[in-house]
Simulated assay, not measured.
Amino acid sequence: MPEESIDHIDFDELKKRAISKPLVEHIYTADPSAHYFNGKIYIYPSHDIDAGEAFDDLGSHFAMEDYHVLSMDNIESEAVDHGVALHVKDVPWAEKQMWAPDAAHKNGKYYLYFPAKAHDGIFRIGVAVSNTPVGPFIPQPEAIKGSFTIDPAVFEDEDGSYYMYFGGLWGGQLQRWRTGKFNAEHPESPTAHIPEDNEPALLPIVAKMTDDMLEFAEEPKEVQILDENGNLLLAGDNERRFFEASWLHKYNGKYYFSYSTGDTHFICYGVGDSPYGPFTYGGKILNPVVGWTSHHSICEVEGKWYLFYHDSSLSKGVTHLRSVKVAEISYREDGSIITLNPYN
């Protein structure tokens, strides 16, 4: 549900129609990255705090300064908040805007990946390490070399390789890197440097991780998202093209790259045969939620698949005060995902 319709929503009625409820209500959480570690569900969300700023497309109203980790013993159990796992004041290179994170596990260590604006105003991606899935996490002193923009998501393949996907338009600055260097012109405009509608859409980025999980093992490269004819989706195709919120999961031997379309508020996906893509557009996973943003993860728990997502129903439509939710997803026999409506 786009922001312009919020004034007309009966939130008590919406609560009754919602297919799921917020996992926690004592704080606002968003952008959930869910993982099944050691027989337990761990959720790594961003933490929404009101900045007291007017809404803008640069995200100035999102005062996100720390991360909490949530856990669930099973998909039906209450979510437990384990408190602050990492705070921006503990990250030497970061100034503000700790946006959507993700986590990974390898050899008994847990890695929290997070974007933040550095002191020069440019988004970078950092990593922090812990001996437990709930932290506290100790950050590396510098951002990952070669990192830029937002929304890191790390996928572990069956051969033990790990890949990071990232990127986000507008406030996420992806469009400012079209030449390979940061373009600082027109800093007040979130849509400056966006391609024309008839040009190929901007693409998410992927890089394989080093064995120690702390750096990129290769030069980051674009991830192609193709239409049914094998052509790149166009920038004007804003109900299908990538905007932000990368995620990768594997189902029946196929790689599913899912993402948010941003200004049109869908969660969509493409299917491919390699973690590098290309991915052919497959359809919508989630229809629009209340609140401007839509951001998700997909996690298998005991043979069933679940979509973790957020909406702004708890804050009654305040776009930057969101709450994490979860709902089961289903696949058709051909591998396509059945679209979820967040409200019946």
Results as ranks from 00 to 15, higher is better:
V318N: 06
I9K: 00
A118R: 13
S323G: 09
P115C: 11
G262D: 04
S315K: 08
D31R: 06
Y44D: 08
V91P: 12
G262I: 02
T210R: 00
R332K: 15
Y251F: 15
L233W: 06
S130Y: 07
P32N: 12
K96G: 08
S60F: 05
V24P: 01
E244F: 00
E300S: 05
I285V: 15
K304D: 15
E300T: 04
R178I: 05
Q97I: 02
Y36I: 01
I19K: 08
P2K: 13
Q175Y: 02
W305D: 13
E142H: 08
A327R: 03
G172D: 01
V301N: 05
K40M: 11
G283Y: 13
N74P: 07
W305S: 11
C268I: 08
S260K: 08
M209E: 00
A104L: 06
E4I: 07
P133T: 11
V91K: 05
H35C: 13
G39T: 07
L112H: 03
A30T: 08
A100G: 09
D151I: 00
I9P: 02
E78W: 01
M213K: 03
I41H: 04
L86S: 12
I337F: 13
K325R: 15
P133F: 09
E185D: 15
G121C: 11
Y281M: 08
G272H: 09
K254N: 14
D334Q: 11
P190L: 05
V301H: 09
M209F: 01
D120R: 13
G135D: 08
M209H: 00
V69P: 12
H296Q: 15
N107P: 01
V318Q: 14
T339V: 10
G59E: 10
Y165M: 03
I298C: 06
N341G: 01
I329C: 11
S77C: 09
T191M: 14
V88A: 12
T29L: 15
D273T: 13
A235F: 10
